[in-house]
Nucleic acid binder design. Sequence first.
DNA 1: ACACATCTTGACGCTTACGTCAATTATTTG
DNA 2: CAAATAATTGACGTAAGCGTCAAGATGTGT
Lengths: 144, 144
Amino acid sequence: MAHHDRGERVAFSISDLSTELGLSTRAIRYYESLGLLNPDRTTGNHRLYTRKDRARLRMIQRGRMLGFTLQEIADLLHLYDVDPSERVQYARGIELTRKHLTTVRHRIRELSLLEQELARALAEAEEKFSQLDHDPMSDQRVEK
Amino acid sequence: MAHHDRGERVAFSISDLSTELGLSTRAIRYYESLGLLNPDRTTGNHRLYTRKDRARLRMIQRGRMLGFTLQEIADLLHLYDVDPSERVQYARGIELTRKHLTTVRHRIRELSLLEQELARALAEAEEKFSQLDHDPMSDQRVEK
DNA sequence: ACACATCTTGACGCTTACGTCAATTATTTG
DNA sequence: CAAATAATTGACGTAAGCGTCAAGATGTGT
Protein backbone atom coordinates (compact mmCIF):
# COMPACT_ATOMS: atom_id res chain seq x y z
CA MET A 1 0.00 0.00 0.00
CA ALA A 2 1.15 3.49 -0.81
CA HIS A 3 3.74 3.27 -3.58
CA HIS A 4 5.43 6.41 -2.35
CA ASP A 5 4.51 7.96 -5.72
CA ARG A 6 5.61 11.44 -6.42
CA GLY A 7 3.21 13.85 -4.79
CA GLU A 8 -0.08 12.43 -3.52
CA ARG A 9 -1.10 8.88 -3.15
CA VAL A 10 -3.61 7.53 -5.59
CA ALA A 11 -4.79 4.35 -3.96
CA PHE A 12 -5.43 3.35 -0.37
CA SER A 13 -6.07 0.14 1.46
CA ILE A 14 -8.88 -0.04 3.96
CA SER A 15 -6.47 0.16 6.86
CA ASP A 16 -4.77 3.18 5.32
CA LEU A 17 -8.03 5.06 5.44
CA SER A 18 -8.95 3.55 8.76
CA THR A 19 -5.77 4.90 10.33
CA GLU A 20 -5.83 8.21 8.52
CA LEU A 21 -9.44 9.01 9.28
CA GLY A 22 -9.82 7.33 12.62
CA LEU A 23 -12.63 5.08 11.47
CA SER A 24 -12.73 1.35 12.12
CA THR A 25 -12.47 -0.94 9.13
CA ARG A 26 -15.75 -2.37 10.27
CA ALA A 27 -17.37 1.03 9.99
CA ILE A 28 -15.95 1.56 6.52
CA ARG A 29 -17.22 -1.81 5.34
CA TYR A 30 -20.54 -1.08 6.93
CA TYR A 31 -20.84 2.18 5.03
CA GLU A 32 -20.13 0.25 1.87
CA SER A 33 -22.81 -2.29 2.69
CA LEU A 34 -25.26 0.59 2.84
CA GLY A 35 -24.16 1.80 -0.55
CA LEU A 36 -22.24 4.85 0.57
CA LEU A 37 -19.05 3.67 -1.10
CA ASN A 38 -18.12 1.46 -4.02
CA PRO A 39 -14.38 0.95 -4.00
CA ASP A 40 -12.61 -1.02 -6.71
CA ARG A 41 -11.11 -4.36 -5.83
CA THR A 42 -7.69 -5.80 -6.45
CA THR A 43 -7.42 -9.09 -8.32
CA GLY A 44 -7.41 -10.69 -4.90
CA ASN A 45 -10.65 -8.94 -3.97
CA HIS A 46 -9.13 -6.49 -1.51
CA ARG A 47 -10.73 -3.07 -1.48
CA LEU A 48 -8.85 -0.27 -3.21
CA TYR A 49 -9.86 3.28 -2.37
CA THR A 50 -9.24 6.42 -4.38
CA ARG A 51 -8.90 9.98 -3.16
CA LYS A 52 -12.54 10.45 -4.03
CA ASP A 53 -13.47 7.57 -1.79
CA ARG A 54 -11.46 9.18 0.96
CA ALA A 55 -13.31 12.43 0.43
CA ARG A 56 -16.61 10.59 0.63
CA LEU A 57 -15.53 8.98 3.86
CA ARG A 58 -14.69 12.38 5.28
CA MET A 59 -18.13 13.63 4.34
CA ILE A 60 -19.72 10.63 5.97
CA GLN A 61 -17.68 11.26 9.07
CA ARG A 62 -18.72 14.89 9.21
CA GLY A 63 -22.31 14.04 8.61
CA ARG A 64 -22.30 11.52 11.43
CA MET A 65 -20.67 13.98 13.79
CA LEU A 66 -23.36 16.47 12.94
CA GLY A 67 -26.13 14.10 13.80
CA PHE A 68 -27.28 12.93 10.39
CA THR A 69 -28.18 9.30 9.88
CA LEU A 70 -26.26 7.19 7.42
CA GLN A 71 -29.40 7.04 5.32
CA GLU A 72 -29.60 10.80 5.06
CA ILE A 73 -25.93 10.98 4.21
CA ALA A 74 -26.40 8.30 1.59
CA ASP A 75 -29.21 10.26 0.00
CA LEU A 76 -27.07 13.35 -0.17
CA LEU A 77 -24.05 11.54 -1.52
CA HIS A 78 -26.12 9.90 -4.21
CA LEU A 79 -26.98 13.33 -5.49
CA TYR A 80 -23.35 13.81 -6.34
CA ASP A 81 -22.94 10.73 -8.41
CA VAL A 82 -26.07 10.43 -10.42
CA ASP A 83 -25.28 10.57 -14.08
CA PRO A 84 -25.89 14.22 -15.02
CA SER A 85 -27.91 13.00 -17.98
CA GLU A 86 -30.54 11.58 -15.64
CA ARG A 87 -32.82 14.56 -15.98
CA VAL A 88 -35.72 12.82 -14.34
CA GLN A 89 -33.82 12.77 -11.06
CA TYR A 90 -32.77 16.37 -11.31
CA ALA A 91 -35.81 18.01 -9.84
CA ARG A 92 -35.93 15.44 -7.09
CA GLY A 93 -32.29 16.11 -6.27
CA ILE A 94 -32.84 19.81 -6.09
CA GLU A 95 -35.78 19.27 -3.83
CA LEU A 96 -33.78 17.04 -1.52
CA THR A 97 -30.88 19.46 -1.40
CA ARG A 98 -33.24 22.27 -0.46
CA LYS A 99 -34.65 20.20 2.35
CA HIS A 100 -31.23 19.42 3.71
CA LEU A 101 -30.22 23.02 3.40
CA THR A 102 -33.23 24.04 5.43
CA THR A 103 -32.41 21.48 8.07
CA VAL A 104 -28.80 22.57 8.21
CA ARG A 105 -29.74 26.21 8.58
CA HIS A 106 -32.22 25.37 11.27
CA ARG A 107 -29.61 23.46 13.19
CA ILE A 108 -27.14 26.28 12.85
CA ARG A 109 -29.65 28.65 14.39
CA GLU A 110 -30.44 26.27 17.22
CA LEU A 111 -26.79 25.65 17.89
CA SER A 112 -26.13 29.36 17.93
CA LEU A 113 -28.81 29.83 20.52
CA LEU A 114 -27.34 27.03 22.56
CA GLU A 115 -23.93 28.61 22.22
CA GLN A 116 -25.22 31.89 23.60
CA GLU A 117 -26.86 30.17 26.52
CA LEU A 118 -23.77 28.18 27.32
CA ALA A 119 -21.56 31.22 27.01
CA ARG A 120 -23.82 33.19 29.31
CA ALA A 121 -24.00 30.39 31.84
CA LEU A 122 -20.27 30.00 31.70
CA ALA A 123 -19.58 33.68 32.25
CA GLU A 124 -22.00 33.73 35.13
CA ALA A 125 -20.47 30.66 36.73
CA GLU A 126 -16.98 31.97 36.30
CA GLU A 127 -17.85 35.23 37.95
CA LYS A 128 -19.46 33.57 40.92
CA PHE A 129 -16.52 31.28 41.12
CA SER A 130 -14.01 34.08 41.23
CA GLN A 131 -16.03 35.78 43.93
CA LEU A 132 -15.86 32.66 46.00
CA ASP A 133 -12.12 32.84 45.80
CA HIS A 134 -11.45 32.32 49.45
CA ASP A 135 -14.83 31.19 50.50
CA PRO A 136 -16.30 32.15 53.91
CA MET A 137 -17.05 28.55 54.88
CA SER A 138 -13.48 27.45 55.02
CA ASP A 139 -11.46 29.49 57.47
CA GLN A 140 -8.44 27.59 56.42
CA ARG A 141 -6.06 30.20 55.19
CA VAL A 142 -4.10 29.12 52.23
CA GLU A 143 -0.93 31.16 52.37
CA LYS A 144 -0.93 34.65 50.94
CA MET B 1 -56.01 18.14 33.83
CA ALA B 2 -55.35 21.79 33.29
CA HIS B 3 -57.66 23.65 35.67
CA HIS B 4 -58.12 26.48 33.20
CA ASP B 5 -56.46 28.75 35.80
CA ARG B 6 -56.12 32.38 35.03
CA GLY B 7 -53.08 32.89 32.81
CA GLU B 8 -50.66 30.04 32.40
CA ARG B 9 -51.01 26.50 33.48
CA VAL B 10 -48.97 25.34 36.40
CA ALA B 11 -49.18 21.57 36.17
CA PHE B 12 -49.25 19.15 33.30
CA SER B 13 -49.95 15.49 32.84
CA ILE B 14 -47.61 13.37 30.81
CA SER B 15 -49.96 13.34 27.86
CA ASP B 16 -50.31 17.12 28.04
CA LEU B 17 -46.60 17.46 27.46
CA SER B 18 -46.56 14.60 25.02
CA THR B 19 -49.10 16.35 22.83
CA GLU B 20 -47.70 19.81 23.28
CA LEU B 21 -44.11 18.88 22.55
CA GLY B 22 -44.61 16.05 20.12
CA LEU B 23 -42.79 13.51 22.25
CA SER B 24 -44.14 10.07 23.05
CA THR B 25 -45.03 9.36 26.65
CA ARG B 26 -42.62 6.47 26.38
CA ALA B 27 -39.80 8.85 25.49
CA ILE B 28 -40.67 11.13 28.39
CA ARG B 29 -40.66 8.26 30.84
CA TYR B 30 -37.44 7.02 29.36
CA TYR B 31 -35.80 10.40 29.92
CA GLU B 32 -36.93 10.23 33.51
CA SER B 33 -35.47 6.76 33.90
CA LEU B 34 -32.14 8.26 32.89
CA GLY B 35 -32.47 10.97 35.48
CA LEU B 36 -33.19 13.85 33.16
CA LEU B 37 -36.46 14.65 34.89
CA ASN B 38 -37.91 14.24 38.33
CA PRO B 39 -41.58 15.17 38.22
CA ASP B 40 -43.73 15.20 41.33
CA ARG B 41 -46.41 12.59 41.69
CA THR B 42 -50.06 12.84 42.57
CA THR B 43 -51.30 10.88 45.56
CA GLY B 44 -52.17 8.20 43.07
CA ASN B 45 -48.62 8.13 41.69
CA HIS B 46 -49.37 9.84 38.41
CA ARG B 47 -46.64 12.15 37.16
CA LEU B 48 -47.19 15.87 37.55
CA TYR B 49 -45.03 18.20 35.51
CA THR B 50 -44.28 21.86 36.15
CA ARG B 51 -43.38 24.56 33.66
CA LYS B 52 -39.76 23.94 34.55
CA ASP B 53 -40.13 20.31 33.64
CA ARG B 54 -41.59 21.39 30.34
CA ALA B 55 -38.63 23.66 29.76
CA ARG B 56 -36.28 20.80 30.52
CA LEU B 57 -38.10 18.62 28.05
CA ARG B 58 -37.71 21.29 25.41
CA MET B 59 -33.99 21.41 26.07
CA ILE B 60 -33.77 17.66 25.82
CA GLN B 61 -35.63 17.79 22.55
CA ARG B 62 -33.32 20.42 21.14
CA GLY B 63 -30.27 18.59 22.32
CA ARG B 64 -31.43 15.41 20.63
CA MET B 65 -32.18 17.21 17.41
CA LEU B 66 -28.70 18.66 17.48
CA GLY B 67 -27.10 15.27 17.81
CA PHE B 68 -26.22 15.13 21.48
CA THR B 69 -26.68 11.92 23.41
CA LEU B 70 -29.09 11.75 26.31
CA GLN B 71 -26.11 11.28 28.57
CA GLU B 72 -24.49 14.50 27.41
CA ILE B 73 -27.76 16.32 27.80
CA ALA B 74 -28.14 14.89 31.27
CA ASP B 75 -24.69 16.12 32.23
CA LEU B 76 -25.51 19.60 31.03
CA LEU B 77 -28.89 19.69 32.72
CA HIS B 78 -27.39 18.57 35.98
CA LEU B 79 -25.21 21.66 35.95
CA TYR B 80 -28.32 23.74 36.22
CA ASP B 81 -29.76 22.09 39.24
CA VAL B 82 -26.84 21.49 41.48
CA ASP B 83 -27.25 23.38 44.69
CA PRO B 84 -25.25 26.59 44.14
CA SER B 85 -23.64 26.00 47.52
CA GLU B 86 -21.93 22.93 46.18
CA ARG B 87 -18.73 24.75 45.50
CA VAL B 88 -16.76 21.60 44.98
CA GLN B 89 -18.73 20.90 41.84
CA TYR B 90 -18.33 24.39 40.53
CA ALA B 91 -14.99 24.04 38.83
CA ARG B 92 -16.07 20.78 37.31
CA GLY B 93 -19.22 22.37 35.98
CA ILE B 94 -17.29 25.21 34.44
CA GLU B 95 -14.96 22.74 32.83
CA LEU B 96 -17.83 20.74 31.38
CA THR B 97 -19.58 23.81 30.10
CA ARG B 98 -16.39 24.91 28.35
CA LYS B 99 -16.10 21.54 26.68
CA HIS B 100 -19.66 21.65 25.46
CA LEU B 101 -19.17 25.17 24.24
CA THR B 102 -16.16 24.06 22.24
CA THR B 103 -18.12 21.20 20.75
CA VAL B 104 -21.03 23.43 19.89
CA ARG B 105 -18.78 25.96 18.19
CA HIS B 106 -17.06 23.23 16.26
CA ARG B 107 -20.36 21.90 15.04
CA ILE B 108 -21.50 25.34 14.03
CA ARG B 109 -18.39 25.72 11.90
CA GLU B 110 -18.85 22.31 10.32
CA LEU B 111 -22.49 22.95 9.63
CA SER B 112 -21.66 26.29 8.09
CA LEU B 113 -19.22 24.62 5.75
CA LEU B 114 -21.84 22.06 4.87
CA GLU B 115 -24.34 24.84 4.28
CA GLN B 116 -22.01 26.52 1.83
CA GLU B 117 -21.41 23.31 -0.04
CA LEU B 118 -25.08 22.55 -0.24
CA ALA B 119 -25.91 26.07 -1.32
CA ARG B 120 -23.28 25.94 -4.03
CA ALA B 121 -24.43 22.53 -5.22
CA LEU B 122 -28.00 23.72 -5.25
CA ALA B 123 -27.25 26.84 -7.25
CA GLU B 124 -25.29 24.80 -9.73
CA ALA B 125 -28.02 22.24 -10.09
CA GLU B 126 -30.70 24.86 -10.47
CA GLU B 127 -28.81 26.58 -13.21
CA LYS B 128 -28.27 23.40 -15.15
CA PHE B 129 -31.89 22.60 -14.61
CA SER B 130 -33.12 25.91 -15.94
CA GLN B 131 -30.96 25.43 -19.00
CA LEU B 132 -32.73 22.15 -19.60
CA ASP B 133 -36.01 24.00 -19.41
CA HIS B 134 -37.99 22.24 -22.05
CA ASP B 135 -35.89 19.24 -22.44
CA PRO B 136 -35.40 17.72 -25.85
CA MET B 137 -36.58 14.31 -24.71
CA SER B 138 -40.14 15.26 -23.89
CA ASP B 139 -42.01 17.00 -26.68
CA GLN B 140 -45.16 16.99 -24.59
CA ARG B 141 -46.33 20.57 -24.35
CA VAL B 142 -48.05 21.41 -21.14
CA GLU B 143 -50.36 24.30 -21.89
CA LYS B 144 -49.06 27.83 -21.45
C1' DA C 1 -71.12 4.71 41.76
C1' DC C 2 -70.27 3.35 37.09
C1' DA C 3 -68.10 3.49 32.81
C1' DC C 4 -64.43 4.93 30.22
C1' DA C 5 -60.22 7.36 29.57
C1' DT C 6 -55.45 7.81 31.53
C1' DC C 7 -51.53 6.45 33.90
C1' DT C 8 -48.15 3.10 36.00
C1' DT C 9 -44.70 -0.36 35.88
C1' DG C 10 -42.69 -4.18 33.67
C1' DA C 11 -40.96 -6.65 29.84
C1' DC C 12 -39.91 -7.77 25.28
C1' DG C 13 -39.07 -5.95 20.41
C1' DC C 14 -36.82 -3.15 16.94
C1' DT C 15 -33.54 -0.04 14.36
C1' DT C 16 -29.18 2.15 13.87
C1' DA C 17 -24.39 1.84 13.93
C1' DC C 18 -21.13 -0.39 14.68
C1' DG C 19 -17.76 -4.17 17.90
C1' DT C 20 -16.02 -8.65 18.03
C1' DC C 21 -14.78 -13.14 16.98
C1' DA C 22 -13.90 -16.88 13.48
C1' DA C 23 -12.49 -19.23 9.49
C1' DT C 24 -10.34 -18.27 4.94
C1' DT C 25 -7.75 -16.14 1.47
C1' DA C 26 -4.18 -12.36 -0.07
C1' DT C 27 -0.22 -9.84 0.38
C1' DT C 28 4.09 -8.62 2.07
C1' DT C 29 8.68 -9.40 3.92
C1' DG C 30 12.87 -11.62 5.55
C1' DC D 1 9.04 -19.61 -0.37
C1' DA D 2 7.71 -19.67 4.32
C1' DA D 3 6.11 -16.91 8.11
C1' DA D 4 4.00 -12.97 9.52
C1' DT D 5 0.66 -9.49 8.42
C1' DA D 6 -3.52 -7.82 6.40
C1' DA D 7 -8.00 -8.33 4.21
C1' DT D 8 -12.60 -10.84 3.25
C1' DT D 9 -17.15 -12.53 4.38
C1' DG D 10 -20.38 -14.20 7.87
C1' DA D 11 -22.48 -14.28 12.00
C1' DC D 12 -23.51 -12.98 16.49
C1' DG D 13 -23.31 -9.25 20.19
C1' DT D 14 -24.23 -4.67 22.02
C1' DA D 15 -25.70 0.12 23.41
C1' DA D 16 -28.85 3.83 22.64
C1' DG D 17 -33.37 5.28 22.05
C1' DC D 18 -37.38 4.47 21.93
C1' DG D 19 -42.17 1.34 20.21
C1' DT D 20 -45.46 -1.79 21.71
C1' DC D 21 -48.17 -4.77 24.26
C1' DA D 22 -50.00 -6.32 28.94
C1' DA D 23 -52.21 -6.08 33.40
C1' DG D 24 -53.60 -3.46 36.81
C1' DA D 25 -54.31 1.11 39.49
C1' DT D 26 -56.20 5.83 39.15
C1' DG D 27 -58.93 9.85 37.44
C1' DT D 28 -62.99 12.01 35.35
C1' DG D 29 -67.70 12.99 33.76
C1' DT D 30 -72.43 12.12 34.69
